[in-house]
Structures are given as C-alpha cells and as structure tokens.
C-alpha cells in the first residue's frame, strides 16, 4: 500500500472486533497487531512472554503502584508503555497496519492516517458468543463480559484522556450484531478504502 494507513480497533468483549480486525488486515494486505506484539517485545528485551501476557491490557493496582514523573513501579504501566513505544516506532517507520486494542486510538492519535473504530455488540449476541467460545453458562458469560469490559475500560482510560467507547473519539462506531461479523468487516473495509482515497 502506497499511502500509510493505521486502523485501530477498540472493541467490547465478544463483539467480534478481533475477527473483524483480522479480516480487514487480510483484505487490505495490512500488517495485523494484537497480542502478538508481545512476542517481539519479549524477544527484544529478553523477557519471558508469559510474564508480559499476565499483565497485558490490565489496569494497574491503584493501591500498590506509584508514579514519579515518567517513572512507575507498576508492571502493568511499564508493559503498556513498552507496547505504546513499539506502536509509535512502527507508525514512525511509515508502516501500515491494523491494531486491536492497546489504547492505539489514543497513542497514535496525532497520525492523520489513523482510522479509529469502535466495535460493539448486542448484549444477547455477546452472551451467546461467550457461551459458545468458552463453553460456559449464561451466568458465567454475563460475568465474564462485564469483567473484561470493565478491565478494558479502566486500562484505556488510565492511559488516555479520551473515554473508551465514547463515539466522539472514533471515526466509526459499529454494532457488529446487526449485520453479522463478516458483513461488518466488509462494510468497514469499504469505508477504510474510501478514507484512504481521500488521504
């Protein structure tokens, strides 16, 4: 792709945001970043990947952490910052990619080629997806969705002045339950194509 484009996908748990991101990347021939960026960070810093995964996209513990200027003792903070640095480097190098989560809508907000998207879903559709994906009961699915969405919100809002899921900060907010995951991905891909033409 000649013009640089970065697509950030923020998503509710079990809304299909991750699959949509993968589909967009595949169709447009873009790089795809999600949890896999931890592999490179682990390799680069000689850290065990399990350690990074344990604290990935988690908010810091309010009581057990403290910040002094740009320094923090919170492992969650430090791992987040490592990921943000990785994304900044990637964007600075002119790479085009789709990034799921990692507060990318805020970290890369100064890039004109950034297209921030938020994917949500109907409550019932998300519960059904969680039951199917994790083979759990409805009650467990509801709790799991609440817990994950709360964690994502806290994580995002910790590192960004923009609120997670606030439509003012995204170019497009879409409910994937209405068209289904596949058609939503097609719709978003077309939207991104048209946006790239206008860059």
């Amino acid at each position: 792709m000649e013009k640089q484009v970065i697509v950030s996908i923020s998503r509710e748990f079990c809304s299909g945001g991750h699959i949509i991101g993968e589909s967009i990347a595949k169709t447009l021939g873009l790089g795809f970043c999600d949890r896999n960026i931890l592999d490179e960070i682990a390799q680069r810093n000689n850290i065990r990947i399990e350690y990074l995964e344990k604290y990935d996209e988690k908010p810091r513990n309010l009581i057990l952490s403290r910040r002094v200027g740009a320094f923090s003792n919170s492992i969650e903070d430090i791992i987040s910052e490592m990921q943000f640095e990785y994304l900044r480097d990637k964007a600075l190098n002119g790479e085009s990619f789709v990034i799921v989560g990692r507060c990318a809508d805020s970290v890369l907000r100064n890039y004109k080629c950034l297209i921030p998207i938020f994917v949500m879903g109907d409550e019932e559709a998300k519960i059904a997806e969680a039951c199917r994906r994790y083979n759990i009961s409805r009650e467990e699915a509801i709790n799991k969705i609440r817990r994950h969405d709360r964690t994502r919100k806290q994580y995002h809002n910790r590192y960004s002045e923009r609120k997670w899921g606030d439509s003012r900060y995204y170019d497009m907010c879409v409910n994937s339950s209405k068209l289904g995951i596949e058609e939503t991905a097609t719709l978003l891909t077309e939207y991104i194509r048209q946006r790239i033409d206008k860059f």
Partner: peptide, 16 residues
Amino acid sequence: NVVGISVAAKNGHFIG
C-alpha cells in the same frame, strides 16, 4: 524505589 524499579523494568528486569 519507583525510579529504580522502573529503570530496571524498562530494560526487561521486572521487580514485583
């Protein structure tokens, strides 16, 4: 303490 732990962690040495 915060600064020392942070400098170590940024270089891959986590101190919990």
